[in-house]
Design a protein around this nucleic acid. Structure first.
Lengths: 213, 213
DNA sequence: TTCACATTGCTAATTATTTCACAATAATTT
DNA sequence: AAATTATTGTGAAATAATTAGCAATGTGAA
């Protein structure tokens, strides 16, 4: 798709718009107003319109936006035409959680392999995803043209896994360990650190508490 | 602590600085330069100095920042003096992952209860955290003065749990379901949605791939 | 037909965050 | 003593993201 340089935040919201729209699609409604989308996500209608403007979508002045069309357009922009395959490394609680959360969600994005070192997990299938020994990672990533890696191992191991992923050819990494990783510029890296999130909540909770008497 | 209106991003980084500093504390070094901190987190030295400026900390021109002092100052700012107690709702894979990630980390922030509906989990202890039936949530939150709630249940249940938490008096909520929640202004809400994260990685991975030939 | 209305689309303003650029400083070398 | 060096601290510029404000428009009512 043609749209370029979408803001990061807009890309995140597009993913959310799509899911919200899919949920109301089956209903009788065919169109939706910006304020309705906004309400579902608890953001402002202006924000919704701005995002849709950025992807070049126009609504109908009286009816709002065509739900089906919009879902398709978002798909054309954020999905890859031929789909993308994903591997999860680390089949502990977090790895499993990711797999279950994802199960049966987006068809263009498929988790097709898991890796671990624990012999009990290897060669078993978890929620439809086969688990292999981590030593086979490079091979399997290459063979299956896996382009995205999710790191859910203990943090010490994260750097070597990231490096191996990059060498094997992944184009994006989602790192759930608190260990900051270094990847070359042609690999997109997203990091999420639960501890930071929780400490942030704690900070603002404390702050709010003081502020509201 | 006195510092007010810290940017959200700065608060997040303070949490990360502290953890990075704790890791190098036991070593021989007593001081650290902004570029060293920056290197550990893969950010710029200016950013580090700016953040420290915002919390009013001054380093030594020749030796850098006193590691111990800085750790303590960050603690004074982001921790609550008397600590904060945390409850996790939903003891599935994600709930368990959160508890293990957190185990033995920050003493000022303690996960002291878990809740679920599954009878097999109730009255058992997971990683040091006792699990109760969700019907007891309000009571236990009030009794133990729990100020932070983590929601890790299937998304449909998230809104009612959030509401119950607010009524029970929590001051901050960390929501891991993709369901956007509504809370009153005196409760701080942080949402993290794995699917959005993964779709974002997919988008930029695709984009990078196109861009770098 | 004309008016009132609700909504989109967009420019401009605002706010938030990061980065630049450089003065100030103190230890070390010449 | 003077020059050199490496570092901090910070105003100001740049960039990113959100929000305000409002003209344009199409529909239904008067």
């Amino acid at each position: 798709m043609f749209v370029k340089n979408l803001p990061h935040k807009t890309v995140e919201r597009l993913s959310q718009y799509r899911r919200a729209l899919l949920m109301i699609l089956s209903k009788e409604k065919t169109h939706v107003f910006s304020h309705e989308i906004a309400q579902m996500l608890h953001i402002t209608p202006v924000q919704v319109r701005r995002d849709l403007m950025l992807i070049g979508y126009s609504g109908n002045l009286r009816k709002g936006y065509d739900i089906k069309e919009l879902i398709e357009l978002i798909g054309k922009i954020i999905d890859s035409e031929r789909g993308q395959r994903v591997a999860v490394v680390g089949l502990g609680n977090l790895g499993k959680a990711i797999i279950s959360y994802f199960k049966g969600k987006r068809s263009k994005l498929a988790i097709i392999a898991a890796f671990d070192v624990n012999p009990e997990k290897i060669n078993r299938v978890y929620d439809g995803v086969a688990c292999h020994h981590i030593s086979q990672m490079s091979e399997i990533i290459k063979q299956n043209n896996i382009s995205i890696g999710i790191i859910a191992v203990p943090s010490e191991q994260a750097p070597e896994i990231a490096e191996a992923m990059v060498l094997a050819g992944v184009k994006g990494i989602l790192n759930f360990t608190p260990k900051p990783l270094n990847v070359p510029p042609f690999v997109y890296l997203e990091e999420y650190d639960m501890i930071t999130s929780l400490e942030k909540v704690a900070f603002f909770a404390k702050k709010n508490d003081e502020r509201f008497k």
